[in-house]
Nucleic acid binder design. Structure first.
Lengths: 94, 94
DNA sequence: ATGACTGTTCGTAAATTTACGAACAAAAGT
DNA sequence: ACTTTTGTTCGTAAATTTACGAACAGTCAT
């Protein structure tokens, strides 16, 4: 029923659909990358909850985590980020 | 904790986060407007489910319904549509 | 007034989301 | 070895989302 673009767009926007995840993505997009702990210090939620949000963003493909023991450095996944941007651009340009 | 823009962006993207709602918005953005029945004929979901999705889009401000008895004509809410577009543009332009 | 048509609302159920603290795991430093 | 640091996973609970059919509520035509 739905084409690839519609499905992808829904997946990306769903991942964006929470203030915490918007904040995380803005932070990662501005500065290159950051650690989970950096976010945890600022955000008014439990570490475990943040971890869940990061997992969702990871599963949507928007971010990726690199191990930098004992921490994990999270960065934007530039390819997916660009794809989401393109899909949204096309979406609004109808 | 979150500013107005982040909250709004999350609200808009959350409303976009479902294939049915993406489809509806694309349809409304392409053609000027359409009736619930037109969508219902095409979409593989119950009328009542469609009605719920339309309600969500309405509550997010993205669409509006005009009574054209006995039907309801749904259209994009251009102001909110433009706002969502601007917020997303700014979001990706960081 | 009685049907036919359109779309919403209600009641319900299953799945998902959001959130927390506690427990756990991996790696580094002591 | 043991402790500290970092972050995930587990267990759980409450709220929300998605979906359906049935019932309802307007409006128009007969």
């Amino acid at each position: 029923m739905f084409n690839e673009q519609q499905t992808k767009l829904a997946r990306y926007t769903k991942a964006l659909g929470h203030p915490v995840r918007i904040y995380v993505l803005q932070t990662l997009a501005k500065q290159t990358c950051c650690y989970s702990g950096d976010l945890s210090e600022v955000l008014p939620i439990a570490k475990s909850t943040l971890s869940q949000h990061l997992k969702e963003l990871k599963e949507a493909g928007l971010i990726q985590g690199e191990i930098e023991a004992p921490r994990i450095k999270y960065c934007i996944n530039k390819a997916s980020w660009a794809e989401a941007q393109d899909l949204l651009k096309a979406f609004f340009e109808d």
